[in-house]
Nucleic acid binder design. Sequence first.
DNA 1: AGATCGATTGCAAACGATTGCAACAGCAAA
DNA 2: TTTGCTGTTGCAATCGTTTGCAATCGATCT
Lengths: 345, 345
Amino acid sequence: MGKSDLPSATDAPDRVRTITDLARIAGVSPGTVSRALSGNSLVNARTREKIEAIAREHGFRPNQMASKLRRQKTGVIGVAIPLGHDVRQQISDTFFMTLLGYLADELTEKGYDLMLRRVIPAQDEDWLDRFIGSGMIDGVIVIGQSDQFERIENVADGYLPMVVWGNHQEGQRHCVVGTDNRLGGKLAAERLIAAGAGSLAFLGDTQPVEFAARFAGAREVAERMGVPIQALPTHLSVDRMTLEVAEHLEAILGECDGIFAATDTMAVACLKELRERSIPVPASMRIVGFDDLPISSHTVPPLTTVRQDIAAGAKGIVDLLLRRLEGDDTESLVLPPHLIARATA
Amino acid sequence: MGKSDLPSATDAPDRVRTITDLARIAGVSPGTVSRALSGNSLVNARTREKIEAIAREHGFRPNQMASKLRRQKTGVIGVAIPLGHDVRQQISDTFFMTLLGYLADELTEKGYDLMLRRVIPAQDEDWLDRFIGSGMIDGVIVIGQSDQFERIENVADGYLPMVVWGNHQEGQRHCVVGTDNRLGGKLAAERLIAAGAGSLAFLGDTQPVEFAARFAGAREVAERMGVPIQALPTHLSVDRMTLEVAEHLEAILGECDGIFAATDTMAVACLKELRERSIPVPASMRIVGFDDLPISSHTVPPLTTVRQDIAAGAKGIVDLLLRRLEGDDTESLVLPPHLIARATA
DNA sequence: AGATCGATTGCAAACGATTGCAACAGCAAA
DNA sequence: TTTGCTGTTGCAATCGTTTGCAATCGATCT
């Protein structure tokens, strides 16, 4: 008696869930509470302190959904990973995962949350429109163009806050951040040839634009130097890759003596197969990879590879996206690859 | 003239953004549109078709925030990765990233979205309460207990829809899914000793409960067999790890002849250092790792390791979480580890 | 004293979708 | 014709926060 000024309700009596509950306790209006907690508007210092104290005491958290609905922005950036050219790939590709990690770091730092969505375009026509139109995100980052270049282009015309990780093509309309894959391909081929290779093979699927550009760069150099080069289509998913790499090797042994792997993961698989066949690297077969994953320096022999600066890429993506959220129609960002010379070529 | 029945507005005239716009065009009430699009409630078939047609034509998407606010559920599961014992670790640990990939797959399949949050507990006292209380997620998955065991326990008392990846401890109150780390440790030690090791070292930090359990299991076996074992604290972040592994090796060479690495990543680093010192594996030094990452079968020699079934773990986490969302107070799930015998021990 | 001004605060209308309840039309049974 | 029923639809309150506008109060200025 005398403890509560309300007829005892059946549910928790003094649970502070809404800003209105808090307002009642503090003896002010909900509006004032909102202003006090949001911090920016004018509120008497004493009132604010009192409200903050009560909020702290009751562990009050304003409902984000209501806030976002009212403010018409969510503070969430969507990250989509299209699994186009190889459905079984899962989201487990090391490179993409590492990029995702860095993106999470950058976005967190800028006060944004990250909503991750894995997409299988073949099963879901308008994945990108759906994601954007869901009203849950302020902007979107697409990791990898996969085989969705056209769809992304179409969306880009009407939707500013989107940045894509991938390959830059002359005259494209969407904002992209990525390594200069063509240049990377050139570096790889030059290195292989300089190391004594007389006939090259490109290990990887040439459908995705990123890989196509790597191959194109390598081919340009090879042709200029009068060295033959062939493409060996290979899937990215671990289970298929191992077998396919083995088959490819059987086919080219004795013919090629330099391999440019589209990915370090493939290069590693390749190294293992060569070792099992007792083919010395780089004496009989030279190898250059792409990515420079953490493992790549730990292989035997250590892998020569083309490095992509993942951290810089993530930073670039987030910076551009934030500027686009402000309405700025930013240019694409192309990062230079670097040849990391180790022992395989 | 005669085209519009409204005085021409300045902005886009026929843009359909809200359910009300759509209702006006269709000549019905907003409520009916809502029912028609949500699909479950009774609406005349012809009316529904008409509304769906208009919606499709105008590319209409209902605002999720409004929907979520009204329905008091978000369809989003939060995934938190606490970076406790090693701030510089980034979210880039391969194992966690792979688990995250599988989680994304599972959640997507069940119709949930995934909100990723990277957390540095040392800088943010009540990260977990903040995440849960934000009103943005229906449930939360914590990847790795790190050094936050107590905080998680406290939250678990008042919040049902949470599942944690990590180690299971007798009598703990939060629902956890994870490998039987102690058993894994035993398997590793048994293998090392069976392979001829007479003095063991555990490579890894023994602070995080998962690692502590692995060490405990190994020590139990070692003591039973009368073999000495020592712990060598090592950080997980790539840059520090390499150096620390090298130092540890200098210290124990000649003394130990069997290494149990807390993580395959460490085992790989270890292999490389040994190779550089021309110490034959497994002849002079035996190694067993933990995780069985994709790279682990590609090392030279191929790594003997304790396998964690990541896919099964992810599936278990999501299944349990969904049951908890229904109000079911589920038990923890402990998965058996498997020794993958390859060539390093 | 009356007017004016600045600092606070309250009021109430949004934000856009959902849903219980009531209304209504059409039709059959009494 | 009245009553009862079924299948659809409209009405209006609700979710919880934000924010433009107006009201209030005390104090200063004329």
